[in-house]
Design a binder for these strands. Structure first.
Length: 352
DNA sequence: TAGGCCATCTGGTCCT
DNA sequence: AGGACCAGATGGCCTA
């Protein structure tokens, strides 16, 4: 503590801690109560705000009176102590301290709520949003960082990466469950693109995705904690309706296609070609919505001003879709977000 | 039951 | 002096 002792800490020093906590009816009790009833938070916060000024003024007044009493009580026989005078822990001071603490707690709660709101906003704009299985805070930040990096890499190079390397970049350093979640959102099998799982990057990716796999800001996460929910069963991931091409898009990457109608694949993925069929719709967009919901929608939904460049960049490609929309998205019932996201990816891999 | 995640409280520090 | 920010501690909830 570099600052001189605060009044509160001095009081604490002079008080028996046990008595202190008894008198203060344990802040943890308050904490427990709060946890049980969320509405109580708001009540508490409001109470704090309403109560404070008046009460504080009253307590200050009481405090002054007691200070005067203290001075009168001063005993000349006792040796004078050096340093800051420790004020006696009066009832008024105790109350005042409690009051300050309550105010500080309320502020801290609000601050954290604001932080969480911001994080929730971030969750909504990273390419994997599920209300039922929310990304953890740390995973949200990691995914956001990867996403930013991946997008800026696209801008920087002016080239579209192939889907695999894009997803690899997104999933860099993410936990297995998050990777599965991202894969689920993208209708991919994480086994097919995760070096950690598949051990090696498929040869066709080594050339096409050099810049993407060499993540300059990649952080090594040795011993990345394995979350308790463990590996998601693939049945959670691939909620794709039966499809003319097979049961899911997963096989697309195990038996890659050059296009939708001729399921064969050889040679390296070149960005535009490689993903052409995978994120395409079979029908022409029938509505303005379908034509335009690409990136602009994404940003609008997030309450952000959509970057003009992106909007125009991605708008056109949404019209090249071949695959029925309803077959694209079905994960966890969040089809809208996923449609939007797939449209973005679709655009990314079409426009170069 | 262990471990991960989270919300909250708390005291310290810095800034205005 | 008071508020913002931060990090440590704690306990609850949830899932494997």
């Amino acid at each position: 503590m570099t600052k001189s002792h605060t009044e509160e800490s001095m009081m604490l020093e002079s008080q028996n801690t046990a008595n202190w906590t008894d008198e203060c009816h344990s802040s943890q009790d308050e904490h427990d109560m709060e946890k049980k009833n969320d509405t109580m938070h708001k009540d508490m916060d409001e109470e704090d705000d309403d109560f404070d000024d008046e009460e504080l003024a009253r307590l200050e007044a009481e405090d002054d009176e007691e200070d005067e009493e203290e001075e009168e009580d001063g005993d000349d026989t006792k040796p004078k102590r050096r340093g800051p005078k420790k004020k006696k822990m009066t009832k008024a001071r105790l109350q005042r301290f409690k009051l300050r603490r309550m105010k500080a707690n309320a502020r801290e709660r609000n601050r954290m709520h604001g932080l969480n709101d911001a994080l929730e906003g971030l969750r909504k704009v990273v390419p994997c949003y599920s209300k039922t299985q929310k990304l953890s805070k740390i995973e949200t930040l990691r995914l956001a960082k990867n996403y930013i990096w991946a997008l800026s890499e696209i801008l920087r190079s002016g080239k579209s990466p192939d889907l695999m390397s894009f997803v690899q970049a997104l999933c860099k350093g993410l936990s297995q469950p998050t990777t599965n979640l991202v894969a689920g959102c993208l209708q991919l099998n994480p086994r097919t693109f995760l070096p950690e799982q598949s051990q090696e990057i498929p040869p066709h990716m080594q050339t096409a995705s050099a810049s993407f796999t060499a993540h300059p800001y990649s952080y090594q996460t040795p011993g990345l904690p394995s979350p308790p929910y463990g590996t998601m069963d693939s049945s959670h991931i691939f909620h794709v309706k039966p499809h003319a091409y097979g049961s899911a898009l997963e096989p697309f990457f195990e038996t890659p296609l050059t296009d939708c109608t001729s399921p064969s694949f050889d040679g390296p993925l070149s960005p535009p070609l490689s993903v052409n069929g995978n994120f395409s719709f079979k029908h022409e967009p029938s509505s303005e919505f379908e034509k335009n919901y690409a990136f602009t929608m994404h940003y609008q939904a997030a309450g952000l001003a959509g970057p003009q460049g992106h909007a125009s960049l991605y708008a056109s490609s949404a019209q090249r879709c071949d695959i029925p929309m309803e077959n694209i998205m079905s994960y966890e019932g969040h089809s809208h977000h996923e449609r939007v996201m797939n449209a973005q990816l679709n655009a990314i891999f079409h426009d170069s």
